[in-house]
Design a protein around this nucleic acid. Structure first.
Lengths: 129, 129
DNA sequence: TTAAGTGCAAATAGTTTGCGGGAAG
DNA sequence: CTTCCCGCAAACTATTTGCACTTAA
């Protein structure tokens, strides 16, 4: 049976209290304030368990796994240039796939380039010319 | 200037001709039929370049990068249990994020559990009880 | 008491990169 | 020629895991 360990609780509290979308390493560094001898492996193990149980959300961006303690249905807008991750409200009906209407949606990720980075890229091209 | 190398062309052709969403290793194994001495590093390099140029799409699922030669706007429905990846039509206008209407959408990923896996999980729970 | 959790360090998996040789323009 | 591309193997990064020891229940 799953236990209610101090570390697990601390990791979950940390994740739920922040509004960014940290990686395992970011959670590790933050949680050491409260539990200085916690190990990175433990952080990875607990985050993985919590994600498998559906308590938290996880998704990969730029080769790194990011975690989100907010498990209300919402979307993630991700800019592949600057790496910014932003929350968006989710209209679940809108996304319900016709091919599998019972598909249980856990997370929706919109990947692309944000308007700031589009502007920056256009500038760069002008400079090159 | 970017060259039009035989390997790059072969990798792109391979990707465009298939309707699955292969990993670098899957492309590598398939492309060796035509170019037996091609190296895995070359496949990685070219896939990365093509993705950076926006010629192909890439996204990470279950810790592995998947590639898609179909760059018409569409979504990916991904089951985190069985790993199935399915294409869905996308109406880009409809999904334009309100917080950044000019955001250039490259890919939309819907993560969750497909109905087959939901059914299988329910079965398992009955067996456990 | 005892099964689950943890720290530590080693192992793994996927991907990237430096370099000398090879090919395209 | 000269610049980019490739094969190869080593390097790197993020993540997982085995084991002896703790801790929650």
């Amino acid at each position: 049976m799953k236990r209610f360990s101090k570390r697990r609780q601390c990791i979950l509290d940390n994740l739920e209290s922040r509004k960014d979308h940290p990686t395992a390493d970011m959670v590790y560094r933050s949680v050491r304030d409260q539990i200085p001898n916690i190990s990175l492996g433990t952080v990875y193990r607990n985050l993985k368990d919590l994600a498998d149980e559906g308590v938290i959300i996880s998704f990969t961006q730029n080769g790194k796994e990011h975690f989100d303690g907010n498990n209300h249905p919402h979307m993630h807008l991700c800019c592949s240039v600057c790496g910014k991750i932003e929350d968006l409200p989710l209209n679940a009906e809108k996304y319900a796939p016709k091919s599998d209407p019972d598909f249980m949606i856990r997370n929706v990720i919109i990947q692309g380039v944000c308007s700031d980075c589009i502007a920056r890229q256009t500038e760069d091209e002008v400079l090159e010319a």
